[in-house]
Design a protein around this nucleic acid. Sequence first.
DNA 1: GTCATAACGTA
DNA 2: CGTACGTTATGACC
Length: 544
Amino acid sequence: MALVTNSVAAYVPLPELDAETEQVLAGWLSDLDAPKVVHDFKEAYKALAGRGLHLAGEVDDTAISGYLIQPDRRSYDLADLSQHHLRMSLAPAAAGSNQLQLQLEEEDVASPAVMEAFAALQLSDHFAGQLVERGANQLLGGLELPLSEILAEMELAGIAVDTEKLDRLLDDFSATIAQASSEAFAIIGKEINLGSPKQLQVVLFDELGLPKTKKIKTGYSTDADALADLMVKTGGHPFLVNLMAYRDATKLRQTVEGLRKAVSDDGRVHTTYVQTAAATGRLSSTNPNLQNIPIRSEEGRRIREVFTVGPGYEMLLTADYSQVEMRIMAHLSGDEGLISAFREGEDLHRFVGAHIFGVPPEEVTSAMRSKVKAMSYGLVYGLSSFGLSKQLAIPVDEARTLMRDYFDRFGAVRDYLRGVVEQARKDGFTSTIEGRRRYLPDLSSDNRQLREMAERAALNAPIQGSAADIIKKAMIGVDAELKAQGLKSRMLLQVHDELVLEVAPGERDAVEKLVREQMGAAADLSVPLDVSVGIGVSWHEAGH
DNA sequence: GTCATAACGTA
DNA sequence: CGTACGTTATGACC
């Protein structure tokens, strides 16, 4: 967990605290009210880094509270642990607070930070054995802990934004919102809150008498899918047109507003990466979330233009893995067909389409290709034929045939997917290529819905999680190589299968080379890891 | 203020 | 009846 003020995991050494460490801890904690970037964190980190457990949670100005996390993401509530393993008690940090504060029975404790360190010290004895048992030492010590420092550096660096451009976008989106809402109001003859699904339900289904959509808890859905349906059924009702324009523009404006507020004094945005949020081992990004910046729509892509190269640097470089999850699926399943497709560098979806539809690759139409693409990605999520039929707007029969033909041709994929769930039911967990576990107790639930959800999660976790392992390993390699070569270029962002770097003058070729090498070598799969690289002065321009 | 819900952006 | 997230607004509640 990257070392920032609002989300902290401390790595506490196993040996007893010496006076110096104690002082660092106390100083570290007292600085938590400082601005976002606290330089002492680096010192604190270095003093504390090493062996130990992962302690995560919330920080306020008097205490760190929270839970301990195993490398495989199992977490242990400190309240529970303290009762069972320590002679400690926990009390609410404040009246009505849902945070807990550790309290030692000993009275002569210098500071909350020291208390916390003491707690971790004792708890570490309890967990050290389990770490070994689970074969998770390498995952923690060789991957997550080294990554933590890298994430801290990325957060400290931040990414430069063009605030003037940001403000112009804000104005543009606001104008669209004003336009769309006034037209929408004119059509229905009154002003409502277009952002309220409840009020929309009244207008759409009661007043305009449009056909009922998918049922949800509170009535009928007004989500994008439902509106698209209604558009078709009504032949493009003008209210719907304006509502959809309003939705798009407000979403974009919210994103822009969030970014605007997040720009710090250095003209850059410093996200926080959370190493312990996602059950699969992915990172998450928060405050602001830079892992969900729009890219699909033209208007949305304009937001990526505001992320720019900062002073002293020459350009941004993005590097992403192409089709990592499908490659991991090919590797894990050992499917000869998929593996040879990747080895020969074919257009994957065209290749698969040719086999499923029984035509030569050059005769795969774009409609066929997009069906195959949807299905291939869907498989990674445990998609059903019903789900596929809905997504592609085709009859269930056709979807079923499509899937059957897929599995006829790529049988090892089906066997693998089945095997994963079966093994997980037996073990209680799934594993990634680096041995990261995800526990899925619901696999044996009596509740069918819960059980099937767990089954889909079990299908997905080794794939998504292995992809996370791979890019994390790549980040450690990239960081090490940048430093080994004495380069000034630096990593700024990670977006699951993509890295964004800021390239110092004259370092472009060296950086591209090492990024390709390190990302390509982050795993030894039976298929190559393809990396595509883009360059530009903005994230948009560098993207591809 | 806190909470659940609906919605929607990304991989 | 497709996985994994984080953020925002609304509306009900305390």
